[in-house]
């Protein structure tokens, strides 16, 4: 878990030399070669820096450097097995649970290092929210699901909890459907409602970044549309990093899109640029459905 500073070797890039106003640290080579300057102009919440990951002896991520802009929705796209899920699960260190995982490089959340033996992983995870591919409300009431993160911190004041439930369910566009049945089991909600409940639960602790791992892949089109609408409405207030295999979805919800292929970040820029005018042939081929 090194924190190596990369010395700027003033490389020649696709976009020419980059001047980043106010940015003190030299930008890495990879970031410059594949990242659009518009991304670098944004204030990052999360900075992924030269991140490598191995499952045993198989390397799954190669030198990924990627700043995630604050208050924006950033989509990770790429064919199956390209490492996008691995990357998002590395952000809150869920990959720690898998035996034989090794890393190199670092990530920083608002300047605080994520990969260091001194980091309190529990505290770190409290600063992030995560929504999974398969909706996973806990087998308890809707109310208790939303306030789970408060409960584990020992919050028991009724007014605080009530207020959080209302605020988060409203933010997750679930309040109208759920307000009269808060004490019912969350498992009685429909699939789409369950996923929105998981989003409500994830934002209850005011996360600095919201991680979404293919949140719509198990939903029908109508439920998907609602969740997408919700993700779209979260921008500004929350920073969202979303993995999706659905390119239309990336186009609809995100401000920035990153294209990954075989464990490498190939192209990263404003969603419009990436979709309309990709700079790499591989990106274009994937976008137009020629592979993937």
């Amino acid at each position: 878990m090194n924190n190596t500073q990369i010395v700027d070797e003033s490389p020649v890039t696709l976009f020419g030399p980059i001047a980043i106003p106010g940015k003190q640290e030299p930008v890495s080579k990879t970031a410059q070669t594949c990242t659009d300057p518009e991304v670098l102009r944004e204030k990052p919440v999360l900075e992924i820096e030269h991140f490598d990951l191995w499952y045993g002896t198989t390397q799954a991520l190669f030198d990924v450097t990627m700043p995630i802009p604050s208050g924006k929705v950033t989509a990770l796209i790429g064919p199956s097995g390209c490492g996008k899920s691995t990357l998002i699960r590395s952000v809150n260190r869920l990959n720690d649970l898998i035996d034989g995982v090794r890393y190199a490089g670092d990530m920083r959340l608002n300047g605080d290092t994520i990969y260091s033996p001194r980091v309190d992983v529990i505290e770190l995870r409290k600063r992030m929210g995560m929504v999974f591919q398969k909706s996973n409300p806990f087998p308890m009431s809707i109310y208790e699901n939303v306030i789970y993160s408060l409960r584990i911190d020992g919050e028991n004041r009724k007014n605080v909890l009530d207020e959080t439930v209302e605020r988060c369910l409203k933010s997750a566009a679930l309040w109208d459907e759920a307000k009269d049945r808060l004490d019912e089991s969350a498992l009685e909600l429909s699939g789409g409602q369950q996923q929105r409940l998981c989003i409500a639960r994830a934002i209850a602790a005011d996360p600095e970044v919201l991680l979404m791992d293919e949140p719509c892949s198990a939903l029908d089109p109508i439920a998907t549309a609602k969740v997408e609408e919700l993700i779209f409405s979260l921008r500004g207030e929350y920073t969202v990093l979303i993995v999706t295999h659905n390119m239309q979805q990336a186009a609809r919800v995100s401000d920035f899109t990153a294209f990954m292929y075989l464990g490498r970040l190939l192209e990263y820029g404003p969603t419009k640029t990436l979709f309309v005018n990709p700079s790499l042939k591989q990106t274009e081929d994937y976008m137009t459905g020629r592979f993937g």
């Binding site: 649970l97 995870r125 995560m130 999974f132 996973n136 087998p139 308890m140 998981c198």
Partner: peptide, 27 residues
């Protein structure tokens, strides 16, 4: 108990014991 529950709890910043006690035992 589905892995999704465990990961969900951990991702919300639960300690291992909190995850076991509040989610796994419950489920």
């Amino acid at each position: 108990v589905p892995t999704e529950y465990k990961q969900g709890a951990l991702a919300l910043g639960a300690t291992r014991w909190q995850m076991l006690y509040r989610v796994v035992l419950h489920a």
